[in-house]
Design a protein around this nucleic acid. Structure first.
Length: 487
RNA sequence: GGCCCGAUGGUCAAGCGGUUAAGACACGGCCCUUUCACGGCUGUAACCCGGGUUCAAUUCCCGGUCGGGUCACCA
């Protein structure tokens, strides 16, 4: 039988990381077995619907390469793929009424007020009880009359009072609950919309979904699903519940608090592939020890047995590392496509070779956002203290630095063909002429050119990029500062 | 509170009764290097607690503790 999984987000805003991971696993489960990955929009809650959220979903799937085989934009014969449209077709009501007819569901006319007072009474008594089945005892005539008079109603699932329900989850194993724990959940809301729980069961069945993948928060409502499948005489799908992705020990990563949504991470300079790679590892591990893999490698490696049961904390530090790995491994063109524009932006107005600067950064940045701060000094020499010229390991002092700078200045001024090789030759021969250590010359020059304790690239690279005039100017600044202090 | 689920270094995470308890991130040290970074080497650091079962438990069972989830006309 063909494996069919579905990603069924509700369009309520940004794509958060936990959601994206679910989509990833759904995609992988289907694709690793030659199956289909379906997109279904679950917009049964009109109050939470957010304009544009559907576009975010499409966009994210496209950006991450999680291409769906069927969806609102790709009919595979199981449409429509948007629940509000399916509702208009009367699909859910039809099935709800079937359940009413066969005695597994019933009309309920209880008002919000009555339900609330029920809850209050229960809360005081320290028990969190269920609906009291007030409307189950309504006679056929009473129901007919209420319906005729236009009284608002919902349809509730009638749970068995005794016995237990057992289901098997692919990651959590066999789980059994007492039926007496189960509430007579609402199937059809008073606005005519199905609840998530009901629409899910109906749609998953109608769309031939074989594997239902979702967060572990649904674990406790799964018995109700199974009972629903039973009531229809349908076969329940394979359940795969996923542990949550946490922000810390106690809190889930959530949309609120602006915790890292997928688009936030992209804005912060992360690469889509790296993010996807990282979250694949949050709750799953391959049988070998590899950590870096492309989506198609992941398709080959993926196996349900590698899914874990316990929550995973999202570790920004490790994501940064992984993002850095992706950046380092990019070919030159891809790398420049990602970085050149932000280098140019950070150095706009300066006449500098941005490509050279960008290339200097490839092994040094972890996210694209690291760039501006790292190259600011190219545009403008920062203020610095002369203490920077003292470096123990390089065996430099302020006096040595001053003389090295002076010697370098003269040597560099005489260069007519300014390029890295010539600069190197010039400085190296100066080193041997003066009989000093490399560092005693290079360190002061690098310091004068950058004005920073560290810099991407050393003396020659900086001099090359900065150009002759600016390099000479910065060295003169250094000489001046040192002379003033040593005088 | 009832019910369900979980628990290996700071974090991710192997492990399926006998191991010096992998690996990765982070952190420290060393090497390389004209700085930083990269790369290489290396170090610190873990089986929640108590009872069983067993010749042998991190691994199996039971209890506890702690953590998470759920108990909506939200998904």
């Amino acid at each position: 039988m063909e494996v069919r999984t579905r990603f069924a987000p509700s369009p309520t805003g940004y794509m958060h990381i936990g959601n994206l991971r679910t989509a990833l696993y759904e995609y992988l489960i289907a694709k690793s077995q030659g199956g289909k990955f379906i997109l279904r929009i679950e917009d049964t809650d009109q109050e939470r619907f957010v304009e544009g959220a559907v576009d975010i979903i499409y966009n994210t799937l496209k950006l991450t390469g999680l291409e769906h085989d069927e969806g609102p934009d790709k009919d595979g014969g199981y449409g429509p793929y948007v629940q509000s449209e399916r509702m208009k077709l009367g699909i859910y009501m039809k099935y709800a009424l079937e359940l009413v007819k066969n005695g597994n569901a019933y009309y309920c006319f209880c008002t919000k007020e009555r339900l609330d007072s029920l809850k209050e009474a229960n809360a005081e008594g320290e028990s969190f009880a269920k609906y009291d089945r007030h409307c189950l005892s309504l006679s056929k005539e009473e129901v007919e009359n209420n319906l005729k008079s236009g009284m608002p109603y919902v349809i509730r699932q009638k749970m068995p009072i005794e016995g237990t329900t057992t289901f098997t989850d692919a990651v959590y194993g066999s789980i059994t609950v007492e039926n007496s724990e189960l509430d007579d959940q609402i199937l059809i809301k008073s606005d005519g919309m199905p609840t998530y729980n009901f629409a899910n069961v109906v749609d998953d069945h109608l769309m031939n979904i074989t594997h239902v993948v979702r967060g572990s928060e649904y674990l406790s409502s799964t018995p109700k699903y199974n009972l629903l499948y039973d009531a229809f005489g349908w076969k329940a799908p394979q359940y795969i519940h996923l542990p949550p992705v946490m922000k810390d020990q106690h809190h889930k990563l959530s949309k609120r608090n602006g915790d890292a949504s997928f688009e936030d991470l992209l804005k912060k300079g992360f690469i889509a592939e790296a993010v996807l790679n990282y979250i694949a590892l949050l709750g799953w591990s391959p049988s070998d020890n590899t950590e870096i893999f492309t989506l198609s490698e992941l398709r080959d490696k993926f196996n349900i047995s590698g899914l874990s049961k316990s929550p995973a904390i999202f570790d920004m530090a490790k994501l940064r590392w992984m993002n850095g790995e992706y950046i380092k491994n990019m070919d030159e063109k891809t790398y420049l496509d990602h970085t050149l524009s932000s280098v140019e932006k950070a150095l706009s107005g300066k006449n500098l070779n941005c490509k050279k600067i960008a290339l200097l950064l490839q092994k040094r940045i972890e996210t694209l956002d690291d760039i501006p701060e790292m190259i600011k000094f190219f545009g403008e020499l920062p203020e610095y203290e002369t203490d920077l010229y003292v470096h123990k390991k390089m065996k430099t002092t302020k006096e040595i630095s001053l003389s090295s700078l002076k010697e370098s200045l003269t040597a560099l001024e005489s260069i007519s063909d300014w390029n890295e090789d010539v600069i190197q030759d010039t400085l190296m021969s100066l080193v041997s002429k003066l009989g000093i250590k490399n560092g005693q010359l290079f360190w002061p020059v690098r310091t004068a050119l950058s004005g920073q304790p560290t810099s991407p690239g050393g003396a020659m690279e900086l001099a090359d990029i900065l150009g002759k005039d600016e390099s000479i100017r910065r060295i003169k600044v250094g000489i001046q500062m040192l002379e003033k202090e040593l005088a």
